[in-house]
Design a protein around this nucleic acid. Sequence first.
DNA 1: TCCATTCTGAAAATGAATTTCATTTTCAAC
DNA 2: GTTGAAAATGAAATTCATTTTCAGAATGGA
Lengths: 163, 163
Amino acid sequence: MLQKRIDDQPSISREMVREAEGMLHQHLKRVGLKQTAQRDTILRTFLDTRDHLSTDELHRLVQKKDAGIGYTTVYRTLKLLAECGLASEVAFHDGIARFEHQYNRRSHHHMVCTECGSSVEFFSGEVDQLEKEIGRVHNYTTTRHTFQIYGVCEECRKRQRAS
Amino acid sequence: MLQKRIDDQPSISREMVREAEGMLHQHLKRVGLKQTAQRDTILRTFLDTRDHLSTDELHRLVQKKDAGIGYTTVYRTLKLLAECGLASEVAFHDGIARFEHQYNRRSHHHMVCTECGSSVEFFSGEVDQLEKEIGRVHNYTTTRHTFQIYGVCEECRKRQRAS
DNA sequence: TCCATTCTGAAAATGAATTTCATTTTCAAC
DNA sequence: GTTGAAAATGAAATTCATTTTCAGAATGGA
């Protein structure tokens, strides 16, 4: 499952990882929760990849670092990360919840191949403006939006022609 | 759960219902399936409402007309309707699949209140253009897109201020 | 160090979506 | 109109991701 990610930073620096850990620790303190080795491991693993991960996929990756960490803890930590703005959920409408890290990233959207599930990111300022505009017209205080395009990628079209 | 629907037609005419039935019957014939009273009842009930219905909600409505029709049949018929273009799925990101009828409707999008679940429809040609444009750039054959805005509606803001 | 609070993770529960299967219905051929 | 193969039906069972429970372990402020 290929995922082309076009981003501002080519990779996450050590400095950024430290800063993200700080954000998590601060959030934990704020809401009266505790700092644990598991949570740190999960955050670091999450930051290590640039893909859109399901809880299950992240759990697999985390287990390579610490086989003792369970699915439940990954699930709960992912919710914590979303709470403090380090992660955000992206729904590709295939019944599986996915997360991507949101730390220091530009607003972007996804185009998903309905054949192979691969995805491409794209940017569009117009969409962000539209959110504000539509909200104003209908008197909503808007918080976020989702925009996904579905289609068939070049590779899958080739494969289809071949068969 | 209020749903403001801003549409081209104020209501579905008898003529349109007949035409929709024709479309379903034609589709059934094409794929070698059979015409049944249940399928017709479900289609008519579906067309009768202008809301975004979950399978469960539609099942409830259908049962008022014919208590013998089961959830499974509604579920399967809704898929058939989607296949022949009479219905389309809208995902509001709350884990429940919803359908709306697509017969003779303009392309539109939804703004959903995250407090009470009510929704407003809006139109934007820009979004449709964007689908084509982004598809062309990344070499995808696009088929559809989803665009939803999430926020808090006026009524819920009032209620929040009051408490 | 103490100990109340929180965390952990296996297992169980949940709930929407989907499939199974025995029975009934459709419809094309006769 | 009858027949019979194929499809439809619907209750119940299953699937599967998500969420909760609970008993033991770990955390961190006093």
